[in-house]
Each structure stands twice: as structure tokens, then as C-alpha cells.
Simulated scan of single mutants.
Amino acid sequence: MSAQADLRGAIVAALRADAALTAVIGADRVHDGAPRGAAIPFVDLGAVETRLLAATPDEGERHIVEVLAYSRKPARGEVSAVLTAIRDVLAELGPAVGAQRLVHVSDPVMRSERQRDGRGWRGRLSVRIVTEPAA
């Protein structure tokens, strides 16, 4: 399995297990590729960009991970609470990420914006994560 796949799996598992996030959005609302018609509010893993730190993956990889949150509330309070919960989960992500070791999590950026249809909000959290092979 690739470092990116290990990282995606670890992030989704950590978000699904977080009581604070579940309290805001409900159970079974974290996806890696949200199904069509997913119940709102929900969280979806967005773009994940991976780059080598040096010449080979054995020397580590840098990932820019985007997590999206969706809400239909009239104000952005719910989506902001979801983004804060996601940021807290990612900050506490354990050192073992599949066959990878998490080295560093930094630079969280949160953004919220009204959906184009005007019926809700989309939040976006972007964070930089560095991993290296565990062995």
C-alpha cells in the first residue's frame, strides 16, 4: 500500500472515531469519496497531493491533505465547528499511519464559503503532513 493510501485510511478512521466530531455531524458521516445523496452535514476527504521529500519514497513524503465539510445551516457556525473538530483530530493523529510513521503535521488552514446554490456552507481544511516508512 502507498503512503498516501495509508494516510487517507488513518485520517478517515481517526475522524470516524472522534466523539466531538460525531456529536456535531452524527454517526457514519465521514467519507473518502462521499456517496451521491449523502446526508448533510458530512465530511469528505478532498484532494491529497503527495511529493517526495528527496530522491526516493524511503526518505519520506510530504502530503497536502484537504478535508471538506458540508452543512445546510443558514449560518456558518456548524461548518466552523466541524472544521475545528477536524483540525483537533489531525493535530493528534498517532505516530503509526499504516506502514508509515507520521513525522509532522503543520500549517492547518481553514476556510468556509457559501455553496453556489446558496443553500448551505462548505468548509475546507488543508494541512501539511510529513510521513516516512516505519521500518
Results as ranks from 00 to 15, higher is better:
Gly60Phe: 09
Ser112Lys: 07
Leu21Gly: 02
Gly9Lys: 01
Leu102Cys: 11
Met1Trp: 05
Ala96Trp: 07
Arg8Gln: 15
Ser106Lys: 07
Glu92Ile: 03
Ala75Phe: 05
Ile86Glu: 00
Asp6Asn: 15
Ala47His: 05
Val130Asp: 15
Thr22Met: 14
Asp107Val: 06
Thr84Tyr: 07
Leu15Lys: 10
Ala54Asn: 12
Gly94Arg: 04
Leu45Ser: 11
Asp58Leu: 13
Pro108Tyr: 02
Met110Ser: 14
Ser126His: 01
Leu83Phe: 09
Val105Cys: 09
Arg8Cys: 12
Pro35Gln: 03
Trp121Ala: 04
Asp88Gln: 07
Val67Ser: 09
Glu66Lys: 08
Leu68Gly: 05
Ser112Asn: 13
Ala55Asp: 15
Ala38Glu: 05
Gln115Asn: 13
Pro108Gln: 03
Ala69Cys: 07
Arg101Pro: 09
Ala27Asp: 14
Arg62Leu: 15
Ala3Ser: 15
Arg114Ile: 04
Ala99Cys: 08
Asp107Trp: 04
Leu15Pro: 13
Val67Trp: 03
Ala34Asp: 06
Val97Lys: 01
Ala14Pro: 07
Thr131Tyr: 07
Ala10Gly: 13
Val109Phe: 04
Ala17Trp: 01
Gly46Leu: 14
Ala99Ile: 03
Pro95Lys: 07
Arg51Met: 12
His63Gln: 05
Ala96Gln: 12
Ala54Gly: 13
Arg62Met: 14
Val30Phe: 01
Pro74Ser: 05
Arg116Phe: 11
Val109Asn: 05
Ala17Glu: 10
Glu61Leu: 04
Arg51Pro: 08
Val127Phe: 01
Ala55Tyr: 06
Met110Trp: 01
Ala91Arg: 08
Leu45Pro: 10
His104Cys: 12
Ala91Asn: 05
Arg29Ser: 15
Val30Glu: 02
Ala135Glu: 13
Arg51Lys: 11
Arg124Cys: 08
Val67Cys: 11
Ile129Pro: 00
Ser2Arg: 03
Glu92Cys: 11
Asp88His: 02
Ser112Asp: 15
Ala99Arg: 08
Val105Lys: 02
His63Ile: 04
Ser71Glu: 06
Ala81Met: 10
Leu125His: 01
Arg122Phe: 04
Arg122Val: 14
Ala135Ser: 12
Gln115Met: 15
Lys73Gly: 12
Ala13Asp: 15
Glu66Ile: 08
Ser112His: 14
Ala85Met: 12
Gly77Ile: 01
Arg122Asp: 10
Ala91Glu: 10
Arg36Lys: 11
